[in-house]
Amino acid sequence: MWGLLRACGALRAAASHPMAVSRPTAARSSTATAGIIVIGDEILKGQTQDTNSFFMCRRLRALGVRVARISVVPDEVDAIAGEVAVFAARFTYVLTSGGIGPTHDDVTFEAVARAFGERVIPHPELVALVHKFFGKTDAQCPEMKLARVPESSYLNYGTDGCTGGTFKYPLVSVRNVYIFPGIPALMERALDGLTHLFRSEQTRFHTRTIYVAADEILITPVLDQANATFQGRVSLGSYPDWANNYYRVKLTLDSESEQDLEEAYRFLIEKLPPGVVVPLVTDCVSPAAAEVYGLAESGSALGQKVAAALRTIEEALDRYSLAQLCVGFNGGKDCTALLHLVHAAVERYPEKLQVLYIRIMSPFPEMEQFIQATVQRYGAERGRLPGRG
């Protein structure tokens, strides 16, 4: 059974090799566009979470292709065929995901054929692959369904990013429609091996991000003004995050012109209310000593409190060795702040900081993950003690 599944997976996996039919060339505009069709009842029923469209969007954008539409359709020939026909006429590329295999609900090949008014026929190359992997030649066996594709199909053999070799199994395309497998690992491998089919040398997308520590309603007038000023040149997105402790709104700016992007970025930085733009700190651990001591010497109200805390920590360091000290830690905000202050103070010591984790009987999984990540982030040595904090 597992051998059958692996072989099916291999045949579903993509990978550029000519067939008897000449390969079509999609009409290109200044910016290549793509439409993604995710196929599967399990997606619409909420039984499986779609990750394929997310992966495709990120890869295509990096290749200079603008994803214009994503659609999710059931395992129905007419529904798939109708969507494929519409997408193929509108976009440079159409990428489908799912519905390739030997079972009754694998109907993508049939649907794509219907979209273009074609027949589904056995492809000699795919028939040979089915025979090679399954040892089956009966035209009616379930495995042979993998070899019956639209009559104008083209077989694309991709390059394995790990080995540099050519994939043994092809991705089927019909005109500007590329038929990817639905299994995420196979789809990702296929797309990564076939990036040359979609790469646009003319287009590069540029992105800037602004983090705002203010509610969206406060900055709406400025966003409206920026959108009116740069409409058609820069795409401006506003995404609130009420749960974030660091910022309230993330603004994204996207453009094909780096000059237009920088102009819009400067416009927003100048027009947004004073003090609401905050820098995003992705690594607060490496510069901890400079930042913490800089704050302590700033003379601000917070800086004075930090300076007092540092004096207490330094007094402990003067009286005891690091081997005699540990920081009590339970994952809360106060002890996280303390850990950061102690880390800043002991960076000049060669020894590692020790953390004592007082673990309750049934901690939340998220808390366990946070504590483990924090210990790794600070390079501390963790001891664990069960009980109540």
Rank of each mutant, 00 (worst) to 15 (best):
V77D: 02
E188P: 03
V249A: 03
S238A: 08
G332K: 15
E262Q: 10
G64Y: 04
F370V: 11
S71D: 10
V73Q: 00
I217A: 15
A344D: 05
F180I: 03
V177I: 09
P365M: 12
S173Y: 05
R119D: 12
N176E: 09
R148S: 06
F54N: 14
Y239G: 09
F87A: 07
T96N: 04
V177Y: 00
E381C: 15
P74D: 05
A68S: 15
S53C: 07
G99R: 00
K305W: 12
V234W: 01
S298W: 08
L186T: 04
G135I: 07
T374E: 08
F267P: 06
E347P: 07
T166H: 12
V249E: 01
V306T: 05
I210E: 00
E368C: 13
E256P: 12
E110I: 11
L218G: 04
L353K: 02
V292R: 00
R377F: 07
D105Q: 04
P240Y: 01
L223D: 02
A68V: 09
R388I: 09
M56H: 04
R348A: 11
E368V: 15
T207Q: 13
N156I: 08
Q304L: 13
A308W: 14
I358R: 00
L317T: 09
G46E: 05
F364W: 14
V375S: 06
F54V: 11
M19T: 12
P240N: 08
D138T: 09
A88Y: 03
L146A: 01
K271M: 15
A68R: 06
A115W: 00
I37M: 04
R204G: 13
Q202F: 12
L191I: 12
E263R: 13
K136V: 10
P122F: 03
F116E: 03
S298H: 11
T48M: 04
G101A: 02
R248F: 08
P150V: 03
I100Q: 00
A26H: 04
C57N: 15
V306C: 03
R233F: 10
Y157R: 07
R66S: 11
R233Q: 11
L295D: 10
Y169A: 06
E42M: 05
A34P: 02
A27T: 14
E262N: 13
A308G: 14
A79N: 05
R119L: 08
R6A: 14
G135C: 05
G135N: 08
R189V: 13
I70V: 14
L280P: 06
S238K: 02
P24G: 08
R199D: 15
S71I: 13
Y247S: 05
V65P: 00
F134C: 01
L272W: 05
E368Y: 10
S152N: 12
F87N: 01
Y246E: 13
T159K: 02
A68E: 09
G9F: 05
S152K: 12
L302A: 11
Y357C: 04
C141W: 06
P221H: 06
H343L: 05
M56Q: 04
C162S: 14
V172R: 00
A316P: 13
K145Q: 02
G303I: 07
G237E: 10
